[in-house]
Simulated scan of single mutants.
Amino acid sequence: MDTNSVLLDIRRIYLEPAAAELPRGREVLARFPDAELVEVESHHRVPELYGDETNVRRWVRIKREALVLGVKKSLTARVNGRSADFIAPSTANGCAMACAYCYVPRHKGYSNPVTVFANIDKIVGYVRRHAGRQGVKAAPNECDPRAWVYDIGENSDCSVDARLSDNVRDLVELFRQLPNAKASFATKHVNRDLLDWDPRGRTRIRFSLMPARDAKLLDIRTSPVAERIAAIDDFVAAGYEVHVNLSPVVVRDGWLEDWAELLDQLDAGIGAAAKAQLAAEVIFLTHNRDLHEVNLGWHPKAEQLLWRPDLQQAKRSENGFVNVRYRTGSKGRYVAALLDLIGRRTPYCHVRYAF
């Protein structure tokens, strides 16, 4: 069965009229000629999708069948400093996949299908000018020793976005031309169409990995972890820089033994070229009270792993959300244990940061 048809079966497009007037908007509409078109005033507020708690019963169906086509109004590059030096303006947000720990639904509303932004020319132009203003990177940092790194997929999965429009390809081609910058995005979806894009080392793909036992319960509608590992050598050979995101790390009985097995699978599954350039980000689970309540409506089994008051403590985020994370002191021991394991099982893998 075609993976794309399982993941995406677009039957309804919520459309900002201005998006339909742009070349990219017309291209997207042409990809789905049989879809019902529903005009909306803003991609931010689609009454049938956002703010309606009853949609939790249609969580996956909405992701598969609905698409929003809009225009990105505000173009900014935010300073980051961990995964990337800057977060680039989004060319999309939302996702067709349904990871139970995803933070985006609590910002945008229930289910959160993909929104594609049609004004790609404006976004590409902004990023080009922003990178030009940075000049040469004066000193190495944890993002990259030489290039300014721009995360192009903060609120979406670019491998999935590439099945809906050419926005991601346009950015990969842009960064191919920039001598002082590179693109970066994390993904849980193997899209082999990207292998033909000739990135010339200027795009970093971060394949997210977790033990298969966790992924089966938490990584809903994603490519199997084994498939992600199997793709790494091919993406390296195609000219991508490939890192891994070991995330989210979920603490449970037997968690460290399962991570040891995953690291052994990674070691056995990639070749010398991939190992020579491999680096990792390690991110332990942070969960959210509101998302916990939503998940109870569509995937309560996941919450048995994600919502652990016996192991977690609450922290109010800068934007006012109540998040939970592993308790101070205990978390430090968890991080140290996993880093020690990585050092023993995959000593060539540089850990860029862990928290």
Rank of each mutant, 00 (worst) to 15 (best):
L75T: 08
I10P: 08
K275Y: 13
R57H: 12
F185V: 03
N288V: 04
G297T: 02
A215P: 09
P211S: 01
L285F: 08
H350N: 07
F175T: 02
G271P: 06
S5T: 00
K137C: 09
V251S: 04
I87D: 12
A139G: 05
R352S: 06
E173D: 08
P145H: 07
L69Q: 02
Y110A: 11
R204T: 15
T54N: 01
W298K: 10
D253V: 13
G109F: 08
G109T: 10
A354F: 08
A230C: 01
D253Y: 08
D340E: 12
R213H: 11
V136K: 14
T76D: 10
V160L: 04
A186D: 02
N119L: 05
V28Q: 02
A336K: 10
E261N: 03
E21S: 07
E257A: 14
G132F: 09
P199E: 03
E53G: 04
D34M: 02
A19P: 11
A18E: 15
P89D: 01
G343E: 06
G239Q: 02
L29E: 13
R82A: 08
V149L: 05
S330M: 08
E16W: 12
L217E: 13
E21A: 14
L246T: 04
A92V: 05
C143P: 02
K182T: 14
I123M: 13
A354C: 06
G94R: 10
D258C: 06
